[in-house]
Design a protein around this nucleic acid. Structure first.
Lengths: 129, 129
DNA sequence: ATAGACCTTAAAGTCGACTTTAAGGCAAGA
DNA sequence: TCTTGCCTTAAAGTCGACTTTAAGGTCTAT
């Protein structure tokens, strides 16, 4: 049971053009039939969702390329992959902290604007360092 | 006490070229001296840090442009500004949730790779929907 | 007065991640 | 057979957010 690029695109939720682009970058390599037409398999779904998820965490196509190459080389590259994942985890943690600070600022500013109509002379105190 | 673009760039932590770009986009408009040289003031620091912070929350230059224009129009545009800030807050919340999920995935995958050397036949169970 | 460090502008270039275009191939249904 | 709808490729185009370049002006110190 194989999927055409259009079907597969609908399953994983990205345009076919993106799948072709990712393939050019080496991230997903489906088999081809006798007419060079791509045939995606059931098993490609999990891997594709995984790399889309990593992308969503901020990982670049370059990094995903490395990860994909290491994966193809087998278990001896687990340390490299762990390293990449741990670095990403750290970056995600930092990004979340930054967003938390943004959220705090937004909350304060929103509160400020809600007060201001009752108190027009209010001035927003941007926290100086 | 006015700052040159180079001094101001050092204070707020962005290249002078970026300050020129933001000015072209209408975000920060310092006065000019008799020779057209920019003079940033103490008071520009807070505003600049504020827009940099909003940028860091994912706000585009286009949106910051709107915000800046509204601000120049005075208190009657507070509703528009509130609206923009509230929308951004929602987007930040969603982004944080997405990152939390990424963090969970990374944690599971890292755990998996740490186990695998002890148990080479392990297969990562990517959570299917 | 000349070198060096700053500043000015407009315009072109860069980067990553796609997306679109152009030109064509193949297969199934009316 | 011919139209429809999917597929193929390589190459060019787009987008946002800067960054770099080119050509020149001005101030200060030696």
């Amino acid at each position: 049971m194989a999927y055409s690029i259009g079907e597969f695109a609908a399953i994983v939720g990205v345009p076919a053009s993106t799948l072709r682009y990712y393939e050019k970058e080496g991230l997903i390599t489906p088999r081809r039939d006798a007419n060079q037409v791509r045939e995606y398999e059931e098993g490609d779904i999990g891997w594709t969702r995984f790399i889309l998820h990593l992308k969503g965490s901020g990982m670049s196509v370059e990094e995903l390329k490395s990860y994909t190459e290491w994966r193809a080389e087998g278990d001896k590259t687990i340390p490299q992959r762990l390293d990449l994942l741990e670095k990403r985890r750290q970056l995600v943690r930092e990004e979340m902290q930054k967003l938390q600070q943004s959220l705090d600022l937004l909350d304060r500013k929103i509160e400020f604007y809600r007060e201001k109509p009752n108190n027009p002379k209010l001035v927003f105190a941007y926290p100086h360092p």
